[in-house]
Nucleic acid binder design. Structure first.
Lengths: 269, 269
DNA sequence: AGAACGGTTTCACTATTTGAAACTTGATTT
DNA sequence: AAATCAAGTTTCAAATAGTGAAACCGTTCT
């Protein structure tokens, strides 16, 4: 796990605790976190108290466990809405999944990882909240490579140095050299492919979302399976994907105030 | 906006800042937050620095604005997954929306408000990430009332005292007495209705999700429109909704370790 | 040019956080 | 039933981190 430079005072420590709790992927007991925490019992205890008070952690008295609190879900909702990318991209993602009949992903870089912001699956009408927020490797996903290809040199190097280069499939690019070669190709073409590099049978085409001045905002991809489409089929979608990415970028730039919502959804009951 | 008792040291202040940023529902400038903040410039500035460092805020250098950071989305994903309700309820929600052909909501109480955790919309195949994390009033939503009806006296009173009783529609219950009467009815029936109390034309039936010992875990509802269904039609779904709520409760109780995922979704590319 | 504004840095003062250790509680063993 | 143990909670002097007034810097407006 990539250690965030702790040292931002108490707030940094508190957030580190949240990450620790998150890393268990299930409710945890106090002592489970204590082992593997650099803090003494009393200190960690007080942090738990504070975070629980604040709704960032939730304590289950029956089981005596702590889980991440709902306040996070609420804040994340706000984060999603005020991100300059996700709300804008929404309609383009809808359209792209509609016309291609394939799964579409929107992602952003978070440190050295890919973080998914939204997804449409044309086949399976059931979309799931928990899809967004997922993270994946940057070096062997379509969106990851598309974004890397358009970053500055120093930044690419920094991120590459943090990749595991784990071999997920026989096609995974497992060396820096191989990745850099692909990135160069992506930069010239303007889009990239995932050739079953992350999961067998899963292929995708991805384009970066770039500001007019070339800053990387995110990545957009259309994913399919080898059973349904060939790499060439997907490559034929390049213009569509790039156009959508371009449109999103333009709109994201001109966007200032959401005024009132793109939000046609009603609050439920 | 319901003020959270600040006073949990620096961490509390930092989180308060996050809430302030969230409340703008768009990226904000430093000074916008400064007005209306109780902190002096220097202090607030340092909080912003820390939070930005930590990925809880994201700074847009082009626009000189701060927005909630992606780390929140990541943490919320983890929160959703380790909540004892949402991942378990997922399949039941799918089933319920399938068989009823209507929109289904899963919610939880967060302070005095209803917080939506998941949603399925059978009619409109596009489900949206940002649905989860939304909040709504407790006193005039189906899930809100269903949960209130099964809380302890002191807690109900505390929450009721925090309701605005704003009249959204002509059917909104605008007095404590009216609400309490409905809650009593819900408690005896075991389910509640929203009779266009929050939005004109929108009706719903909701049941609480209760532990065997009667603790309120959340609420589950089926929503429709007066154009499509009558209140009686919805009421006929009561057994289904209650059964689903019951099943979720049972499974949530026996749940300890998710082991590996209910997660049939693949990570995208 | 000058003023005003938004943002950043400084620094002596203070309040909070720290962490070792003692204590409480509830469960398990003998 | 007493003893043991682990988990969780509280204490307190010392150390650290946070505070906020004010000064500073760079843009933008007049």
């Amino acid at each position: 796990m990539a250690e965030r430079q702790a040292g931002d005072g108490t707030v940094g420590k508190a957030l580190e605790v949240l990450d620790m709790v998150a890393s268990f992927e299930r409710p945890v007991r106090f002592s489970e976190v204590l082992d593997g925490s650099p803090y003494p019992k009393g200190t960690l205890y007080r942090l738990f108290q504070t975070l629980t008070n604040q709704g960032m952690l939730a304590y289950d008295p029956d089981r005596q466990t702590y889980a991440l609190g709902v306040r996070l879900v609420r804040l994340a909702h706000a984060a999603w809405q005020q991100s300059s990318l996700a709300p804008i991209a929404r309609s383009y993602i809808d359209a792209l999944s509609q016309t291609t009949g394939e799964t579409v992903h929107l992602a952003q870089l978070d440190h050295a990882q890919v973080l998914y912001l939204d997804k449409r699956n044309a086949l399976n009408p059931i979309e799931m909240y928990s899809q967004a927020g997922k993270v994946g490797p940057a070096y062997c996903t379509g969106v990851g490579k598309a974004m890397l290809a358009f970053l500055g040199d120093e930044e690419v190097s920094r991120i590459i140095s943090q990749q595991s280069f784990h071999r997920f499939t026989e096609y995974t690019l497992t060396t820096e050299a191989a990745l850099r070669a692909d990135l160069a190709d992506i930069r010239t073409k303007g889009f990239g492919m995932d050739r079953e590099e992350h999961e067998p049978g899963i292929i995708c085409i991805a384009a970066p979302i770039l500001t007019p001045r070339g800053r990387v905002l995110g990545g957009l991809s259309v994913t399919s399976t080898t059973a349904q489409k060939s790499l060439a089929d997907l490559e034929a979608l390049a213009p569509q994907v790039q156009a959508a990415a371009q449109n999103i970028a333009v709109e994201a730039q001109s966007w200032r105030f959401p005024d009132q919502a793109t939000d046609t959804n009603r609050t439920g009951t």
